[in-house]
Design a protein around this nucleic acid. Structure first.
Lengths: 109, 109
DNA sequence: CCAACCTTGACAGTATCTTGTTAAGGTTAG
DNA sequence: CTAACCTTAACAAGATACTGTCAAGGTTGG
């Protein structure tokens, strides 16, 4: 199924389906000529992604990062570390790249 | 440590620290009078959150959702289901670099 | 060949996020 | 008590994300 028909099926736009693919929320196959080819699974993924955005009130990009948090061990590790730092209140020194982080903080302000 | 001193320590503003708390990225204790009381761990969490935003090229809101994905079983389950539907590779997920992240990386180099 | 669809890329408008600032008042510590 | 800090809430400016639309050209299938 091509992107236009998929969009009509889902009640969204072809533009949004391409954006969702760019974010990694859906990964349709391609024809020999380069056309996106949506199967039932791809439709379900796109529909579910839209539902999750509404249910959790998050943007497509946040949803994509949530996927990475589950699939990329480095991301998961970093988030667990952040959760640990945020949750606790015992005295622990800034034992990671303090200087770099401070610099980024300053530049971002 | 109060919010103003914490901001100076991190090279950022009190406003940003309050915003980070609103997003759930930091959770400083409160004094009896309601003042935020930042410990070393809170400082580390705030700095690490900023570093993660730059490293993984995501917004603060996306980072907060990543934490939810790690801590809320319902969110985690939904995301695993989405990942299963999407199947295939997660490599495309690396393509959602934001302009802000690019700016931070440029400034940090 | 042709109509209808698709591709990527870029531009633009709108919505939302991020951050600062101000106001009115409360807390802390000297 | 006072100075200096903090609180929340709100408004506003600037940056970014999201989405539509257009352009130039390629694919598909009759």
């Amino acid at each position: 199924m091509r992107v236009g028909d998929a969009a009509r099926q889902l009640g969204t736009s072809a533009r949004m389906l391409r954006y969702a693919e760019q974010l990694g929320l859906v990964a349709p196959a391609r024809t020999a000529g380069g056309y996106r080819d949506y199967g039932q699974r791809d439709l379900a993924a796109a529909a579910f992604a839209l539902e999750l955005q509404a249910r959790h009130r998050v943007t497509p990009a946040a949803l994509a990062f949530g996927l990475r948090a589950l699939e990329d061990p480095e991301v998961a590790g970093s988030l667990r570390r952040l959760a640990r730092l945020r949750g606790g209140d015992a005295a622990t020194a800034l034992d990671f790249e303090t200087a770099k982080a401070r610099r980024l903080l300053r530049l971002a302000s």
